[in-house]
Structure formats: C-alpha cells, structure tokens
C-alpha cells in the first residue's frame, strides 16, 4: 500500500535519513524502532509529504506522491510528536476546526467528533480547554484530531513521550483496537521497545539514519536465537567483578546497570557455575539470576552496541 524507495534526506553535511526503504501492507501494524536522533521523525515527515526528500521516492499504491501529495494526504492521519493543537480551544473546538478543514459539516461532523472522543475516552471532558488537560489527555486529543477524516493509514511519531502509564496504556489499547478491529494500517515510531513489541507485526530498526534490520518480531529475535540473556542481580555494584565476568570466554555482550549485570551468551553454554564461582571469590552476594529469551532491546543492543534510550 505504502512504500518508500531509498529515501534520503541530507541537511548540509548531515545525512539524517540514508537510503531507507520501507513497505507498509494494508492493515499491517509496522514499528519503526530506534534511539533518539536515529532519523525516525525525518523519515516520517518525508512519508507524510511534509518534507521533500533529497533523493528517493514515496509511493502510495504504486504511485509517487512527491509531486502530487493530495491522494496521500487524504488517506493519512498523522500524529506528530508535538501536541499539534490549539491550547486555548477545547478538545471539541479543536476537533471541529480540523474536521471542517477536511470538509465535514453538520451532523456528520458532530457524529465524527463524538466517535473520536469516545475512542480516546474524552467524551465527558470535551468542553475543557486543551491547556488544562494532563499531558496524557493532550496526546489522546492529538490522536483524535488525526482521526477526524477517517484515514486509512495512521502514522504516529513517538505518541507516548512524556505521559503517565495510565494514559500510555489507554493510547496503546486505542491504537491496537484501530489496527485489529478496524483494519487501519499503522506506522508507529518509538524508542520504547516494549510499545513496538506490543503493537507491531513487523519492525524496522533504524540507527544513524539507516535501517539496520527489519522483519517480524520473531524474525528479528531469531537473530539472537542461538543466544540467551543472563541477568544477574548483586547486593551492590562490584566494578572489578563485573569487568572480570564480562571477560569470561563465551560472553558476547555485557551491560552493567547499577548493581545488575546483563550478559548475552551462547544458548546452552554452561557458564553459570563459572559465574557463581567468580562471584564467590570476590565475596559478592548474588540476589537474583534470570535467564531470558532475547527481546527487541537485546537485538538492538546486539546490532548497534548501544541501548535504545542511550
């Protein structure tokens, strides 16, 4: 349905997006995962026809949209990272304004406003000014505004940044409902691995402007299928011990988090005894040991050598 072909954006000496090719099939939920500064927002701006690429193409149903963006804009609902609303207007007034921009009027407009407000759970507070809402509520109206014209594709750029867990769950549930129950195609960008893991069928991982991996969640995790993650929690931080453990033969990657050590090791390796032995030599107390199957975060770590939130 929607694809990008070698999309590139260069700002003076910086290449923000480098040769990115993505495909979104109808009804799919696709994640664009990457740390801050990876080029996700720039890619989204180009896909949304708001920014001209330096090279490459964006196609909707096989037709380029760069010169004639109207068709693309008709089917797109874009939820930007910023709260793109009038703070001095109420949620209802904002939705009415954006609805009218899309040519809605009369009963149809009122019904659509009611529908999207119900969808984001703000029907009972629609008369309040947006500036008086919590951050989470503002993000929900931000989504509602993008839904006013019944878009076929919803593009969301970090829609949960800076909101409380309750609002985040509500928002994620709403997006899941739109994708699964209403068949809406979703492109969801985030640097929160768990959100992408929860919502998306397929994932593109971006770093430094490039797509470094893509596939279904299972396919991506299969990158680490011959590995497992061991998380050891100690009673305190032992820098010297942690360094020693990271250097044990077979350890492929290690991360230190305060008093925990995360090691990626080959599946089936009998390393635990060696780890405990070394800890005992240092007089360190192990509080907890957890052997996990890899997450997307682990995949990202393996691919880039750094964490998503670095």
């Amino acid at each position: 349905m929607l694809e990008t072909d070698k999309l590139t954006k260069q700002f003076k000496d910086t290449i923000a997006v480098d040769d990115v090719s993505l495909v979104l099939k109808r009804g799919e939920s696709v994640g664009l995962l990457g740390p801050n500064g990876a080029g996700k927002s720039t890619a989204i701006a180009m896909i949304s026809t708001l920014m001209k690429p330096s090279s490459g193409d964006v196609r909707l149903n096989g037709k380029s949209v760069l010169k004639k963006p109207d068709d693309m804009r008709r089917v797109l609902g874009v939820v930007p990272q910023k709260i793109a609303l009038y703070e001095e207007l109420s949620a209802y007034e904002n939705l009415k304004f954006f609805g009218r921009l899309y040519g809605l009027s009369g009963n149809k407009l009122e019904q659509r406003i009611e529908y999207v407000l119900e969808l984001v759970g703000l029907a009972d507070r629609k008369k309040e000014l947006v500036k008086n809402y919590s951050g989470g509520m503002q993000r929900r109206v931000n989504l509602a505004a993008a839904m006013m014209h019944e878009p076929e594709v919803l593009i969301m750029d970090e829609p949960t940044v800076g909101i409380d867990p309750q609002s985040r769950n509500h928002l994620l549930e709403t997006i899941r409902k739109l994708n699964r129950d209403e068949g809406m195609t979703v492109l969801y960008t985030s640097h929160y691995m768990e959100e992408v893991e929860k919502l998306c069928d397929r994932v593109y991982i971006m770093d430094h402007g490039k797509v470094i991996a893509e596939g279904t969640k299972e396919e991506l995790k299969a990158i680490l299928s011959d590995q497992e993650t061991v998380l050891i929690e100690f009673d305190q931080n032992y820098p010297e011990l942690f360094k020693k453990l990271s250097e044990i033969e077979g350890v492929q990657h290690s991360t230190i988090e305060e008093q925990s050590l995360k090691l990626i090791i080959p599946r089936g390796t009998r390393m635990l005894a060696a780890l405990f032995h070394e800890a005992e030599r240092y007089g360190a107390q192990v509080i907890n040991v957890n052997v996990q199957t890899p997450t997307l975060e682990d995949v990202f770590l393996r691919l880039t050598g750094r964490k998503l939130r670095d």
Partner: peptide, 11 residues
C-alpha cells in the same frame, strides 16, 4: 506547534 503542518495535511 506543528498545527500549520496539520493544516497543510488537510489539503
């Protein structure tokens, strides 16, 4: 606040 972008997207 990117409201202008929203307006542009409305065609």
């Amino acid at each position: 606040q990117m409201v202008f972008d929203r307006i542009r997207l409305s065609n």
